[in-house]
Structures are given as C-alpha cells and as structure tokens.
Design a protein around this nucleic acid. Sequence first.
DNA 1: TTGTAAGCGTTATCAC
DNA 2: GTGATAACGCTTACAA
Lengths: 341, 341
Amino acid sequence: MKIGQATIKDIAKALNVSSSTVSRALKDYPGISDETKRKVKELADKWNYRPNAVALSLRKSKSFTIGVIIPEVVHFFFSTVISGIEEVAFMHGYNVILCQTNEKLKREISSVETIISNQIDGLLVSFSKETTNFDHFKRLIEQHYPVVFFDRIPNLENSVNITVNDYQGAFDATKHLISQGYKDILHLAGPRNLDISKNRMNGYMDALKEAEMPVKPHRIIECPEGVQEESFKICAKVFKEQDRPDAIFANNDMAAAGAMRGVKSLGLKIPEDVGVVGFSNWQFSSMVDPPLSTVSQPGFKIGERATQLLIEMIEQKGDEPFTPKLEILETELLIRGSSVR
Amino acid sequence: MKIGQATIKDIAKALNVSSSTVSRALKDYPGISDETKRKVKELADKWNYRPNAVALSLRKSKSFTIGVIIPEVVHFFFSTVISGIEEVAFMHGYNVILCQTNEKLKREISSVETIISNQIDGLLVSFSKETTNFDHFKRLIEQHYPVVFFDRIPNLENSVNITVNDYQGAFDATKHLISQGYKDILHLAGPRNLDISKNRMNGYMDALKEAEMPVKPHRIIECPEGVQEESFKICAKVFKEQDRPDAIFANNDMAAAGAMRGVKSLGLKIPEDVGVVGFSNWQFSSMVDPPLSTVSQPGFKIGERATQLLIEMIEQKGDEPFTPKLEILETELLIRGSSVR
DNA sequence: TTGTAAGCGTTATCAC
DNA sequence: GTGATAACGCTTACAA
C-alpha cells in the first residue's frame, strides 16, 4: 500500500529542479550547491519524505531483508533464536521475513519460492522434520545465494552452518546421571532424520561406553513427535516391567516431561527411583515437580551469530562462492531436582 | 539479491515476441494464440520463471506483505499470536515482516518508519509498555493506512482493535473456585496500572459479590513482577497464618506456579487444602503438579482474527476510512487438577 | 552545478 | 493476436 508519501519527483517538481538533483542533494553528493541542498532537504523534511524501499530494491537488486525459515514459532528454543536474529538484523538495518513451516516440507518449499520471488537478500534456515531431500536449498547454494543453516543442519556441500554441540550436551547429561549412581539409562531419542537426534544419541552412547556400561538397543526408543503423550505412554509401559530402567535421558524437555508423568503414574519417585534429564531448557522445565535437569542451548546466541554470518555473506560483494563453515556453540548442563539423589 | 532468475524479457527475447505477449500468455489473457501460450509457458517452466515480486510491488503499490509490531517474541502468548498471524497470512499469500520492540518506544517508532518505507500493505500492533503517546500510529490511521491493534489496545479514534475478555475470564475462574466449595479466595493481582490487571480483579470481585461472599481487601495482594519467587514468598507467609485462605486466583500462571510451590512448602495439599487457578494457560501449566487450572487466552485465534481483519481492510479497495471496531474474544476456563476436589 | 535518459521487471493502454 | 510505450520511484552514466 502506498501511503500518501512524497516522492523525489514531487519534491523536484515543487522546486523546479530535476529528480536527479533532488536524489543527489539528499545524499550529499559532491557538486550540488549548498543552496539547492538546503532547499531540497528542507522540503523533504517538511513533507516527511522517506525513500521508497521497493523502488530501491528493484533498482539495486537488494532489499535489506532476510528470510527466516523455521519449523515452529511457538517453541521456546526457536522463539529465542528469532529474538537473536531480530536484534542483529535490526542493528544492521535489515528486515526479517518470517516463514513458519509447521514441520511441513511442502510449506518449506513454498517458503523458498517466496524468498526467491521477493528478492530477499539471504536466508536463515532450520529445516522441517519432514525434510530429507534438500534440493530446494541446494539450488540456492549452487547459485551462490547466501544461506545459513542453524540448529538443524543438513549435510550439504559448501553450506554454512551453525549449531550447538548436541553431542557434548548429551554426553554431559548422561555422564551426570551415571555419576549419580543410575545404572540403567533409557534414551528417548528424536526423529532419526535429524542430525541433532543422532548427535544426542551418540553422546548418550559414548558416555555409557566411557563408563564401561553396556549400550542396550532396547533402551533407545524413538519419540518422533516429541509430544508429552508419546513419552508418557512409552514410559508408563516400559517402567511397569520387572527389569526396568532407573533413569531417562530424553531428546527434549517435552518428552522428558511426559516421561516424568508416565513414571510417576506408576508410583515411582523422581529422582529417588528414576532420574530424568531433558534437553533444551524450555521455560517450563524449572517448574515441573521436581524441577527438570536439562541441557540448555544458547538459542539467542545462535540467532545472533547466524545473522552475523549471513549479513557478512550478503555484504561480501563478488561472485565467489562462500567458504563453507560449521560453527558449534557449547551447551550448558543445568542440574536440578530430577536427577540428584 | 537477484538470483540468476529468468525474467519476462529473457523469455520474450528467446521466443522472439514482445514482453507484453509473454506477460499476457502467462496469465491466460484472452487474445493470445494457443500456440504462443504453449511456447511461453513451456519455456517459463523450463527456466523456472518466477515473477519478481519487487517489480510487482512497485508497479501495483502493493507488496502482499504485512508488518507485525510486537513487544517480545520470547513470550508464550505472543509467540502463539505470531503463529496465528503466520497461518492466515500464508493462506492468503501474504508475507509477514516481524518487528520486535523489546518494549521500547524508540524501537517501535523506528519500526513504523520501516513499515512505511517498505510499502507494507498493513500493520498488526501490540504496543510496548513504554508507549503512552500514540502519534506514530495516529498518523497512519489518519492516512487510512490499515492498522489492527491486538491484545494491548490503545484508546484511539477510528482504530480497529481485538482483545480478550479478561473480566469474564477472571469471573469464571473465581466462580469455579466458589462452586468447588472454596470459601476464602486470595487474589494475586497484577500491576495496578495495566488495564488487564484491573479487569481481572474486577471479575474476581464481582464473582464474589454474585455469590454473596465478602470482598476482603487484605485478600487482594499485588504481584507486580509476576515472577515465581514473588508469589512463592507471599504465599509461604500468608498460608502459615491461622486464618488462612483456602484458594488462590492468580493474575497469571507464573504467579500461580510460585504460589503452588509456596503452599506446598507448608505441607498443604493442592487441591484438597488449597485450590489454585491461574491465567493465560502458559505452556508449563499443564505440566506442573498437580496440573494447573487456568484461563486460556485464545492467542492463536487473536493472531488469526487480527490478520483476517487486516487483510479485509487491505483488500477493501476504495478510499473511505475503515469502520472502527473492537472485538473481544472469549477466554476459556481450563479445569485441571489444581482446583477440583 | 544541473539536466537527460536509461534501466531495474512488470503490466496497462494504445495502436496496428 | 501481437507489439510499442509509458509508468511505478529511484539511481547513475553521460551531457551540457
């Protein structure tokens, strides 16, 4: 929508000069008389002139806008990331276009289309759980379009990535459970196609190995959804058996919360009978009973850093491909009541 | 950034026709031979042609983009609203530009500038806590620019607003506690200067009056912060006394959660000894022990409805001012374990 | 010191 | 059926 805004033409007409003169005067180009500059600026000010960013975009093939493709906004971790993105983008004069995929591949592809159509300068991506084929992103990268993947990162040639050290976080969490004397730790794993799930599982397994404890395949159960009900049911069943685990390391806090309910529904006590550690430090995790130990991810920092990287790429003029990159931020183990006995 | 995309011109040149022909062929205009249409579409498809949205914006003074000005993304309620906004915007083919103000007026004003510069079609606003002067919005409304205020709504002539029935929500919550046989209900109130706090307190008081129960001033305690510690301390003290309340209606879930901890720390049982109801249905509220009864605000719906209203305004051609509006969405009382005995 | 004109990609309006 | 042209708002060679 065009809000009755003054254009350069309007100012030019009113002052009986050409638009180029106005354009130059406004930008303090050399070779414009002080008198003209003064008059132009005065009128521009009076009429509250604002350059039309769309015209500029068209002219310069640059929109000062970055796109963010994200699975879910209503997710403590992602909303924290968005906040970090917003901050850095704002500081550098960039706008942020938000595309929520709801974990749907179709929606993700359509978002990429939007990005292309809108001459967006660069893209920050955390792909959906459904995404196993990355052609829609590969095409962008091949054309030297600036893309930074964050958190959920693909295995793509020449891509720029930033994520958290999920492996180490999981390793630390598991080691902590072991140090508390838990002997049989169940892992509620995430969707298999996400690297983060694999890394967390590996951290879990390596911690067991380091402690010379057996890695039992039936103690690793996938929770693809990550919702409460899923892990509730699983745990309500698994912990009923005679040979039950005595601890849980969950791929995320929501699964951990469901697991806690499942365990409690059987009359087992946390942390006395069963220790629990989650992942992500969602807002609720300090409020469940007992407070949930968890691995906190630096969401805000990821958002900030990803955006910094992206803007560097955007502003690196030239046609050379970007140097591939993988930055890994460290997690922090937050020990609370659910895992200390 | 321009990604080596084909333009109408490119296609025209390759097929030895004019750009207008290509443009028309692509849109199935009447009066283009089927043969030409076929050839054009074929090549467009092969070259993966996508119309340049920026050029369209310039041409049509319409960007199919809406702006969202919001205090904080990392806030369960607001992120839910954003999610609703995203959904409806996407369905109608609109993009969403996100501007987070961090509760700063300066940032809010700067965001409005951005919106104007970028020919954004319309604006959704929940203003910052610092905002007491609304001139930057008033100017837009006077120019018949589409603006919808949500949740935090101003008292502005000719504005379109959508918010939640806080009064009724509080009334229902209190009435529910009464119906469960609780006789002495403490209200943990919000900051006195916010309308929502006042409305909720009024709902609480009117429910008591309706039941012919006394409204005792010392049973209304302000929790300006709304953080856990605050209400924890208050309740740990108030419920130690001989003449203690037997229920709590809190201005928000965070305060309710702290209150629950405070009550439990004295060995009192929830809901047997003390009933608790919160407000907002934060994500954690179903996960505390026992699950917290609460008044859910339809965040997603607010986002959806606000966006519907905005898009209607945008697409209502013509220059007449918009009809002022105030829509109030109803809350829903979610009865869970903390208040049923 | 200033003006003219072309061009970014698209479409509406004529004209043929 | 199709083409030429202008226009959206702005910048920038090139001319004057």
